[in-house]
Design a protein around this nucleic acid. Structure first.
Lengths: 216, 216
DNA sequence: ACCTGAACACCGTTCAAGT
DNA sequence: ACCTGAACACCGTTCAAGT
């Protein structure tokens, strides 16, 4: 754990993952790019797992830049601040899809992650959510946003609806009646999904939901 | 892709991952347990990635057993059927935490996964959700449930609230005022979280949310 | 048709040895 | 204090060779 410009090193490793995939981020490859042997990395990064944690921390700090919060004092309402944070979160996985495989397995305990939580807390308090409910709602909201973005980037939503059924050989199942709701919804499942629009629709629903929690 | 009792083989591999972790599921280890060399697996499983897909498929079929849906014709209302599915989903990651690292990176195109979707579709239709909104809501609901369960099992929720801040060295930040909402919520963040209760509270909120979408 | 042995090009990590 | 070389115990996958 030496001080030698770690942020820049993490930035280089993030770029390596962006360009060559997460599997290309090996101790040997990372070391070579720094002009070192793999073994010389250990005093600096601790282990491979810690190296990945540091890379994730770097992503969060890109999306949550230090300094005053967006719209701090500028009169942005809580809804607009949450929209901003959610879109930034989705952008993270869009730009760095390899992070989808990592995010659910490591608690983000960096200063930047705490600032993001703090801004969500503040928005929920301003919305009028009871204090005792704020931590739970913060976890639920970040789970929705991260889950959506990770599903999209990682491929869980994959080829949607009918196309997914087709690949899984399920069209026969739909026709023979063993998937009755799929059959009833065929008209809607056949349409291609506009993922941008779906994310925005989800966010609108989330805001409405927060308002109902706040008002009773 | 040969027919020789693949479900039992997948079951053995799931048990290997449960007991020794996902890293222990190597082609060589899996082959050895079947009395084969690693290379003999390839005609059967295709590749390591497909082997992992098959293991995930096996998990879904354990949690979504074939046959009539739970409460089919037994008069269970849509809420009770969704509660059942959600709790089964959470149980999956509880019993097999290694699946949390995989779920967001692979579309589940098995017959069992489609049956699970179908039951959620049917419940949403019965609740009165407009047909055009059902596919989006299904994705949102499964994302909430899977995201919660994966966060819990994978460690993203990790040591919660204040404890997380402490580990990240953030207590000083709270005291100096750079995390004002954390400071305001300190009373609530200090309490240990009951994750069972939080999941049930989230599910209640989800049901309320579905009702509001259905009635307007 | 099905399986094996040997090999290729890698991994993360340890540790004694160097300067 | 910091780094290297060699080694350990592994990976997924290819491919010619066996029966």
């Amino acid at each position: 754990m030496v001080g030698e410009a770690q942020p820049e090193n993490d930035r280089r490793r993030v770029i390596l993952a962006d360009e060559q995939g997460l599997d290309a981020v090996s101790m040997r490859a990372v070391a070579q790019r720094a002009g070192l042997t793999a073994m010389a990395l250990y005093p600096h990064v601790g282990s491979k797992a810690e190296l990945l944690d540091q890379m994730l921390g770097r992503l969060v700090s890109e999306v949550m830049p230090a300094g005053p919060a967006p719209g701090e004092g500028a009169g942005l309402c809580w809804q607009q601040r949450l929209y901003f944070l959610a879109r930034q979160g989705r952008r993270l996985f869009r730009d760095h899809p390899w992070a989808a495989a990592l995010i659910f397995s490591r608690p983000a305990a960096t200063a930047e992650a705490a600032r993001a939580s703090d801004e969500v807390y503040a928005a929920l308090l301003e919305a009028g959510v009871p204090e005792s409910e704020v931590p739970r709602l913060e976890r639920m909201l970040t789970t929705v946003v991260i889950g959506y973005a990770a599903s999209e980037a990682g491929g869980r939503f994959g080829p949607g609806g009918i196309e997914r059924a087709r690949r899984g050989g399920l069209t026969a199942a739909v026709r023979e009646g063993s998937l009755p709701a799929h059959a009833a919804l065929a008209r809607w499942l056949e349409q291609p999904v506009d993922w941008d629009a779906e994310f925005e629709a989800d966010l609108r629903d989330v805001m409405r939901f927060i308002e109902t929690v706040a008002s009773g």
